[in-house]
Design a protein around this nucleic acid. Sequence first.
DNA 1: AAGCGGCGTAAAGCCTTTGTAAAGTCCTAA
DNA 2: TTAGGACTTTACAAAGGCTTTACGCCGCTT
Lengths: 225, 225
Amino acid sequence: MIYIVEDDIEVREMETYALKSSGFDVMAFECGKVMDEQVKTRVPDLFILDIMLPGEDGLNILKRLRVQENTKDIPVIMLTAKGTELDKVKGLDLGADDYIAKPFGVLEFISRVRAVLRRSERNSSESTEALNLALGGVTLDDQRRSVTVGGIAVELTFKEYELLKLLMSRPGTVFSRQQILEKIWGVDFDMDTRTVDMHIKTLRQKLGVQGSIVQTVRNVGYKVQ
Amino acid sequence: MIYIVEDDIEVREMETYALKSSGFDVMAFECGKVMDEQVKTRVPDLFILDIMLPGEDGLNILKRLRVQENTKDIPVIMLTAKGTELDKVKGLDLGADDYIAKPFGVLEFISRVRAVLRRSERNSSESTEALNLALGGVTLDDQRRSVTVGGIAVELTFKEYELLKLLMSRPGTVFSRQQILEKIWGVDFDMDTRTVDMHIKTLRQKLGVQGSIVQTVRNVGYKVQ
DNA sequence: AAGCGGCGTAAAGCCTTTGTAAAGTCCTAA
DNA sequence: TTAGGACTTTACAAAGGCTTTACGCCGCTT
């Protein structure tokens, strides 16, 4: 999934069309604010930011992305109409992964996107799972084994973490207590115990205001949504 | 160390001078063949290849570098006087990491080199050399193999050092005892031992007040943060 | 409305995991 | 060979999470 921020509607649609016809999933936004909302829900594989934007410019968006924990390692391509050297330098020094000067050809555009994604993949390849989940204000980074609520880190115990990861891996899907016991506790026999309930309770507690994303489905099990 | 292949002597010296005055080690070559000899002796951190060369062109050199085992993961920047889109596409699709069209400014040149090296470093963090890590009051200089706490040198044994280096190479990431045994002890079987715990203890001790950056993640392993 | 079963929650004991001291083993240098 | 250092194992203590028990609440069924 690629996120684009570009104010000019024609350019935006051209880029979207070009990438989609090359097989990429794309979402385009008019400004950084709108994109922020989407980032909370799902983190993309690549950002493409125009530098010249009304309101917050692309360099500033880049700066923010590099600070946030869940986006700081995601590649960014900067675009600009101003072919000035200074802009390039700024963007690259802030940690952009590539820089394309407008006007550019479609072929070059696609090619650069591919190059950046290939590099990004080449490197993160060793990271076994790279599971990165976000839902509402809750994010789960499986490599760091860290969970944040509204950007603030939350300390979870082993079982709590595994539980949240399981539920968040399929938002909306209900897991029975039996399934949860099998997946996390590794017991396949029928166990009459309140252990799962207990962990759901402490998990909700630690998630604070977002505790309500963990929902009870009476007579069935639990889900997050 | 950066290797440059460029036939125009003026451009070659300009590039060399620019990079050297920014603190990089540079070696410049007139053609790919001469460089090959040097590559056998020492592999650089980055290649900068001109596309238009007498004899073998830059794209072909790139192709060869990408095939060879010892150079295939080393970043490459392509340079060209021909600003045609097709050249860019070819270079990027062959796996170049960046592309700079001549004429370019010195600032942009340096900046792109830095950007490519930073990316390369960010990811291949676990391997190679020139590892220089700092966290809190703890610094680790891998070239000197020295560690300081609050500016004061600390003597670590081999295993202690490797352990700290591994953990610091990815702050926040949790390493299981099994992973640690594999990476540092080279054992890939399941070993029931408290050796890792023991070294964690002595490491914490030697780090003194900063010992608390080495954190236990119960049921999982250890991390630094 | 009452009964029943499912769920939430608090508290306490259990039990696994981790910290640590001390003794033992291995290797290297004198 | 011996002394010293690094590394490993053992054994026990400490810590912390996990599980159970117990009880109250709530919604559904009769």
